[in-house]
Amino acid sequence: MITVENLVKEFGTKRAVNGVSFTVQKGEVLGFLGPNGAGKSTTMRMLTGYMPPTSGKVSIGGREVTEDPIAAKKLVGYLPESAPSYSDMTVRGFLSFCAELRGLSGSARNDAIQRVAGLCFLENVLHQSVDTLSKGYKHRTCLAQALIHDPEVLVLDEPTDGLDPNQKHEVRQLIKRMGQTKAIIFSTHILEEVEACCSRAIIIDRGVVVANGTPEQLKLRARNAGSVTLRLTGAAAEAVRGKLSGLSLAGEVSLGADGSVVTARILPRDKNVGLELGRAIGDLALTERWKVEELHTEEGRLDDVFRAITTADTKKS
């Protein structure tokens, strides 16, 4: 549904987005990650036809955004970064205005307003003026606007920003549910959100895509992913080291001893061994009759990956 090819945006001499390419299929939820100023919002503004790209192509449902903006925009629901809405209108008036611009009128418009008010929990404030609402309600009002025409493509810039934990949970569930039938791209700083509802994630830094894959694939890129922690008693540290180093799957082994308790950390030789290393160590412990207190395989954490990828880049320059 969304195809982005070699997208570039320059502001003066600064390249905010530098050759970004990706695609999002129907039924996919793409998480868009990156530090502040990495070019996330700029990319989303180009996707939605607000900002013209310096070069590169964006097409939505086969329609190029720069060539046929109106047809492309019809397919997209967009929640901008600051979740703006007209403060002098009521929630209902605002949604009605957006629905009419989307070509809905009469009972279709009223049905659409009822539907999104239900989805975004706005029923109680429909007749309230937007400027009397709290931040969370304002945010959901703007989200409701993005859903009003039941679009095939959703572009959400920080959809859970400013919401309380319950609302965050609801919005994540909503995104996940809608992701089954739509193509969704959303940006966030919250990494657990990516694990909770994305089928794929992209990390962007300084305008360049630095990682692209499922959350599981990305987690494997963590330095400690797949490493095994073993804590035991009843064996000498050096003997344990010798046995562990003898395993064919094991790489570097680091050891700590506290009295009779030995803690070992074993890195896998190869990132792709998965849980095999843990099993091999378990078998070894059984045959050696070690008294195991803890045996645990590290999954790898997304924020470690995020930090490693994005700060490594900062250090380079």
């Binding site: 939605t48 036809g49 047809a71 925009k73 703006p84 957006c98 611009l101 070509g103 703007c142």
Partner: peptide, 14 residues
Amino acid sequence: RQNTLELLLTMPIA
């Protein structure tokens, strides 16, 4: 000022 410009101009209107 209210950033609604972004909203208005990403609607399917010229």
